[in-house]
Design a protein around this nucleic acid. Structure first.
Lengths: 110, 110
DNA sequence: TTGACATATTCCTATATGGGCATATAATAA
DNA sequence: TTATTATATGCCCATATAGGAATATGTCAA
């Protein structure tokens, strides 16, 4: 059985590099699809498909203006990922601290 | 063409929920494989396979002790994910700030 | 050695999914 | 209406990958 679908799990949605690129591109301001196509040099159908995944999983929002669809990143939906990865922070901090300790310890007896 | 392999992209490795469970379980201290099996109620071969993926992508380290293999999470390898998701922080902060503003604005004229 | 224990690997299968291409839908302009 | 622009969908294919079951490998004990 495969993992939870890309359209239901933000972790999985973000596992695709192009979708990360799109999210980064759309974070500062909303953009029409064609801006993504030309900026990221991706085929238009591919962009539309990625946007659909991102939309279903809640990582982007859309607004229509005439024929154009303006997408923008819904940053709040990324927050849970940041929080989960953040639960490891104190441990990599420990690791770095130990590295530092060892470095200092090996300096002293010079 | 599929996305970057689970063994080369930490984002993709972590897209599998069981692997996230394993990483969380192994973060505080190293554990033999069987501890993971009994605690997370997963088939042993499945655990070994997930651990292999995590090992190849650098998210865990191993140490052998007799017949047991002690795995532990390499927290530092999660740091890039935390940093990438962190680039969106100021934007969800903005969103929250606007929500707050609107809430206060609608309180005043009571 | 032989046996028991701990973990890893192999083989098979089902499935999600991303790409490419053609085409459909939607909205505006002429 | 018709044409044009902007985006979305459908179809087909290739591939990675997760699960299950059986088995292999490795390590220690008797």
């Amino acid at each position: 059985m495969p993992r939870a679908s890309t359209t239901s799990d933000a972790f999985n949605a973000v596992a695709e590099p192009r979708r990360r690129d799109i999210l980064s591109f759309l974070v500062a301001q909303e953009r029409p699809v064609n801006d993504i196509v030309t900026t990221l040099h991706l085929p238009q159908p591919s962009v539309s498909k990625h946007l659909r995944v991102l939309l279903e999983v809640g990582l982007v929002d859309v607004r229509r203006e005439g024929r154009q669809m303006f997408y923008r990143t819904n940053a709040a939906a990324i927050r849970p990922l940041h929080e989960w990865t953040g639960t490891f922070e104190r441990y990599w901090a420990h690791q770095l601290a130990r590295v530092k300790e060892r470095a200092e310890a090996s300096e002293k007896p010079k």
